[in-house]
Design a binder for these strands. Structure first.
Lengths: 352, 352
DNA sequence: CAATCCGATGGTAGCGCTGTCAATAATTGT
DNA sequence: ACAATTATTGACAGCGCTACCATCGGATTG
């Protein structure tokens, strides 16, 4: 466990090999494929590495091997809590592996996404994790030309580029609407901000569920392309009320909006859930603490991040999963804002 | 703007140089120090690069130059909104520069921090951004041996390792307490979770302000090492009430706790601000939307991230700032939860 | 006008590692 | 016991780029 690197000249693999009494290439194999070494050499190299405090030069490795140990991650937002959880999963499960995470932020711009993917391609990452399934044709072409495992996260669909981990936003929204309908509500408003593809899918789940019940009405819908905030939830709700005063429930595409609605109702003395049911999406922590607590759809974001990394690493190392598409499902968490009793109803969990 | 790299053999700097009719080393200089080239050569290399769609091989560059273009960022949490904002600033201002951000998460563990710093040292980053000023002696030694610009963020203090951007958590907490005292409140509770060094400093600001007013009382304090959640805010507040029923104000070390307190008060029919004043910290977006809106201390997190990157890059490129410590200050944003009128009072903004 | 300097350019020699393939040692079957 | 096979190991030759120094023409100076 020496501290020799501080001493003088840098320790190269050659030095390690010399001390261990093997050739440099054998020492190199010690890192890449230790099983290939005989036990005795393996031990000798191991102790030489420790004694000299050897640290591999990643640049030299990448140059010589034409490979990197970087997993690129492309997400649309750094501020959104949803991605914070996914990222935590990603970083947690990359730790301990040899791979390094390289993060890139598209800010919900598909052009930016194309640019970032092009950039990644130039760096030849070992694997890639991208958000969503709505890449442009150009982005998709880049991904397919990339020649490394790719996992699409956050949602699932047909025709993965390679692998997928996520859940059906459509089904999740449908389940939420079914629940509201079961509570006897009929005029269910829809509040949406920043209508990205996944939010769009939630809208479709809402729309079809409402149509199936013959309750669909365009006047129940208020959306905007503005980014989500709690304040915006209040504003959109005010717009909805002005447009359609007889609503008896609101489905919000995320919990921030739902919290904004809750506050706006407090301001207007609208009693929840007596006068209005509120259902959010994502099941952020505060939904359970709110007064009244807010019904929401729990999504397994941390696990999504973990699985995405595991799948990519497995694929890099030749252990491709049996099924390329992993459905992590969702759970409708029923709380006070939409009923009187608090329960959890399981959603579709399992393999697609 | 060709797409030749797709065609066949990879484009190396040699190819670019050949096409431009210069030596490889001149082409290399085109990227590193374009001013050193004559205008004519510069133009020729430029168009050759574009025609061939040349993309530099970063590994080769790093190997040959003994430098990387990586800025390491060490933060304690990926989930905390506070760091999400800082990170956004960091990524935003690294974009467009030649530098790449490499993120590492300590999960509030100083041992993990040491480990990560050691890892970074092995990679010889061009610069480093670390959170806080309470590194262990070992971590500090690593930082000092790193031989690259280092910026400490989130708070400021004496004896920076190199540079600092932040603000005084002590002063910010003091300002919050002064405000509460000015409202005529005397029994001001303190709620703290995950007492990291910055939260500790806020506590000291609270403690000294209370002592200065001869109002300090240990029974007013409830803290825990558990991570912050909204729910926890309610729990801690319940504990505080049980311990000291006559409180007339609560200072929470962050807005999540404050929101939890607000909800708990709604549950208990405690009227805000009539019966109790609430003040949070960070000025997250929801504080303005809450009912009643929550007084909080605004900190310039996004700007902190931006400045940190700018300072590091400037230092890497030899443009060291005049003063190594940058105080971004704070603003106490007074809202309904602690008074009746809503105003903003500026905190100490300026250079330390 | 020679001496000096400076800006622009190029040649040489690696940076530290791994791919490829050959060489050698150990193991097995009959 | 001997060929055939398999596990280990090593030699060699670069990966694509830049540091270092050398070069060269022209501008500056007394």
């Amino acid at each position: 466990m020496g501290r020799k690197q501080t001493k003088s000249g840098k320790i190269r693999l050659t030095e390690v090999a010399k001390l261990a009494g093997v050739s440099p290439i054998t020492a190199s194999r010690f890192f890449r494929n230790p099983e290939a070494l005989s036990l005795s050499k393996r031990e000798r190299v191991d102790s030489a590495v420790k004694e000299l405090g050897y640290v591999p030069n990643l640049a030299a490795r990448a140059l010589a091997s034409h490979r990197t140990e970087v997993i690129g991650v492309v997400i649309p937002s750094l501020t959104n809590n949803v991605f914070a959880d996914v990222l935590r999963g990603i970083y947690d499960s990359s730790e301990g592996s040899r791979y390094t995470i390289q993060l890139a932020n598209t800010r919900y711009s598909i052009l930016q996404e194309e640019k970032l993917l092009r950039l990644f391609r130039a760096q030849k990452p070992a694997g890639l994790i991208v958000t969503g399934i709505n890449q442009t044709a150009e982005s998709r072409a880049i991904l397919e030309s990339m020649n490394c495992p790719v996992t699409q996260i956050m949602e699932i669909g047909d025709s993965p580029v390679d692998m997928m981990v996520g859940f059906s936003h459509y089904d999740a929204a449908s389940a939420a609407i079914s629940h509201i309908l079961e509570q006897g509500r009929r005029r269910i408003g829809f509040l949406g901000a920043r209508m990205d593809p996944r939010v769009q899918r939630r809208f479709e789940g809402y729309r079809d569920a409402m149509k199936a019940a013959s309750l669909f009405d365009p006047n129940l819908i208020v959306t905007t392309s503005v980014p989500t905030t709690v304040t915006l939830g209040g504003t959109l709700f005010a717009d909805l009320l002005a447009q359609t005063p007889d609503i008896d429930a609101v489905f919000c595409v995320n919990d921030d909006l739902a919290l904004g609605v809750l506050f706006e109702c407090q301001r207007r003395q609208i009693s929840i859930p007596r006068d209005l049911a509120i259902v959010g999406f994502n099941d952020l922590e505060f939904t359970a603490a709110a007064v009244p607590s807010i019904t929401s759809v729990r999504t397994n974001r941390y696990e999504m991040g973990r699985h995405a990394v595991t799948m990519v690493i497995d694929a890099i190392e030749g252990r491709r999963p049996q099924t390329p598409v992993l459905d992590l499902g969702f759970q409708l968490v029923v709380r006070e804002s939409s009923t009187r009793q608090s329960t959890v109803m399981a959603g579709s969990v399992g393999i697609d």
